[in-house]
C-alpha cells in the first residue's frame, strides 16, 4: 500500500483533492505538488477531502499554511472536509478552525463556495 495518496476530481471551477494514508514530513511534498499543479492551472477553489487520511503531523499542516495566502489573494480558498476526530484534534490544537473552513462533508464544502 502506498503511504500517501492524493487524487484529484474537478467539479466545474472547484477542484477536490482526496488524500489518504499519512501526511508527514516525508509525504508533504506530494501534497505540495498537487496544490502547486492546481495553482499553475489557475484553479484556486480547492476542497481537501480527508476521508482516507489516517495521520497528520505539523509538516502536513504547514503545506496549507504555505499556500493559503496566495490562494485567497486570487479569490479562492482551501476548504477541508471529512476529517476523522483524530485528524481534527491536531488541527484544533494548532488553532486552525478559526482560520480555515473545516466542515463535516464535501457537500457542505461545495455549498460554502457558492
Amino acid at each position: 500500500m502506498e503511504n500517501f495518496t492524493v487524487n484529484r476530481t474537478d467539479k466545474e471551477d472547484i477542484s477536490v483533492l482526496y488524500i489518504g494514508g499519512f501526511l508527514d514530513a516525508h509525504t508533504a511534498p506530494d501534497l505540495e505538488n498537487a496544490i502547486q499543479n492546481l495553482i499553475d492551472g489557475e484553479r484556486y477553489k480547492i476542497i481537501v477531502n480527508f476521508n482516507d487520511l489516517t495521520y497528520i503531523s505539523s509538516a502536513g499542516l504547514g503545506v496549507f499554511m504555505g499556500y493559503i495566502e496566495l490562494i485567497r489573494n486570487n479569490d479562492g480558498d482551501i476548504k477541508m472536509s471529512n476529517m476523522s476526530p483524530k485528524i481534527f484534534r491536531v488541527f484544533d490544537l494548532l488553532g486552525f478552525p478559526t482560520l480555515y473552513d473545516i466542515v463535516d462533508d464535501e457537500i457542505k464544502a461545495l455549498e460554502n463556495f457558492k
Binding site: S57, S58, E69, L93, L94, T98, L99
Partner: peptide, 22 residues
C-alpha cells in the same frame, strides 16, 4: 502566540508547540 503565528502564516515551528502540548 498561536493566533498571531497563524495569522502571519509562518510555515514550520509548530512542531515544538505540539510537542509541549502533547
Amino acid at each position: 502566540n498561536l493566533k498571531e503565528y497563524l495569522a502571519e502564516l509562518k510555515v514550520g515551528g509548530l512542531g515544538i508547540y505540539l510537542m509541549r502540548t502533547l
